[in-house]
Design a protein around this nucleic acid. Structure first.
Lengths: 244, 244
DNA sequence: CGAGTGATTGACGCAGATCAAGCGAAGTGG
DNA sequence: CCACTTCGCTTGATCTGCGTCAATCACTCG
């Protein structure tokens, strides 16, 4: 019943690197199963040492961490193909929580097999390091955005990134409509803005005919205008990347 | 003339994991040389594919990225033991710049040997992934600080982190005096604050007898008070970590 | 001694936070 | 099936933390 990795619908996408037959078989041996979860489910808790690692196969979610003062920082949005739990696998404990915002299907791996897999498959180990380095790069960009851009620019940056990611996964509707199964509060917590100001910033983007967020989707109406606000880096297409 | 890894003065510190003789010899073979650079030198440029990777042996520096609008985000401060250039090694191109703020000595590795080293030494590969995951974790914390904390709290957080890092490396003077070879502008760019407000925030910390930054050093005068501002996570001691 | 760099301090203005109220859609339980 | 609650979005009014501008001071260096 679980999808065999060789028939994984994600792997046929251009963004994901190809693997040869032997490599795929190794992955299938590593794979422990598949998990369907409902929207709103907590996938991993902050501070927990999850016994399992996951790859998102379908659905969306978000990574976030909660501070002592009750405030919350959204670190990233989770899309299909994302590898979840690397910190638990490597460092022994999750440093942020992961939660599903739609129903999701996850590919499950056992943490106890992780080190062996890493050791016996150096190319996959390299891929995992690539993923960690890329995640690090993303957080650096996010930090620069939150630290140095205005609310409007941050929002444009976030929309550009979401557009690039959704585009690479073939999730865009009509080329410019991005699935957004999140609340404005989630976006606010991602960009370090208040909910109210997030709402008003979105209203301004709508008035300026740049993009509008309605009904669970963001519709981009002026890509170049957004890109000008967001800075050049935000528009770059995603690099081809490994899929574990 | 270069220090042999087996006599590396850093490795005898408690924060760094031990390696057995064979592992050390492998590191020595990977090591291409040593580099002394003067303060102010650019070690790696944003966007460049550095032919070399480094480990900081002594001195301090900073990682930063520059935005299109001319503003700058400092991602992290560089301390001895830090591995520099992972992104160039893995992703082919640095996503941020690294610059020395004091004279530094760097341990040099050739990028062309990197993949082979990674493949032939799975434990080292694991260590490198550990480093990437830890760096990711740090950036997540930094993002949460910049996104959700007030100027005073951010400053307290930064000082706590610097204290922990300097302490683990035995760089503290009298247990609470942290070497700070940076300008207030650097701290401002790290915390997403203006220079003026950074200065005023420091003045407030000084008035409240929490910490004072003078003469290239931060003196902590009320550790618990700072910790209360910064949040519990900031005070945690550093995990033991690999040294490449 | 003049020029440059970094720290410091005051005055002022604004982007964005906070407070408050209202709205529609979607439960939900009696 | 209809009150009643809850949740998320929207909008206006007000407040404030922090940015910006500007001037001064202390040091260092050629």
């Amino acid at each position: 019943m679980p999808i065999c990795c060789r028939h994984c619908p994600l792997r046929s996408l251009d963004v994901f690197e190809d693997l040869d037959g032997e490599e795929i078989r190794a992955l299938e041996r590593f794979k422990a199963g598949e998990l369907k979860i409902g929207k709103g489910t907590q996938i991993m808790l902050e501070g927990a040492s999850s016994p399992q690692l996951f790859t998102a196969l379908s659905g969306q979610g978000l990574r976030h961490k909660t501070l002592q003062n009750g405030r919350r920082q959204v670190l990233n949005f989770v899309f299909p193909g994302d590898f979840l739990g690397l910190q638990a696998g490597i460092m022994g404990e999750m440093k942020h929580a992961v939660e599903a915002t739609t129903d999701m299907v996850l590919c499950v791996f056992d943490r106890k097999d992780f080190f062996g897999f890493f050791r016996n498959h150096p190319s996959r180990a390299y891929d995992i390091t690539w993923i960690a380095a890329t995640e690090e790069h993303f957080l650096g960009e996010a930090l620069a955005s939150v630290g140095q851009l205005s609310a409007t620019e941050r929002m444009a940056w976030a929309i550009m990134r979401l557009h690039a990611r959704a585009g690479a996964l073939g999730m865009l509707i009509g080329g410019s409509r991005i699935p957004m199964p999140y609340r404005q509060q989630d976006m606010a917590d991602a960009l370090g803005l208040s909910l109210v100001h997030t709402n008003k910033t979105l209203a301004r983007l709508r008035d300026r005919q740049l993009a509008s967020w309605t009904d669970g989707h963001i519709q981009i109406t002026d890509y170049d205008g957004l890109a000008r606000l967001a800075g050049p880096e935000a528009g770059e297409p995603l690099q081809r990347r490994p899929l574990i």
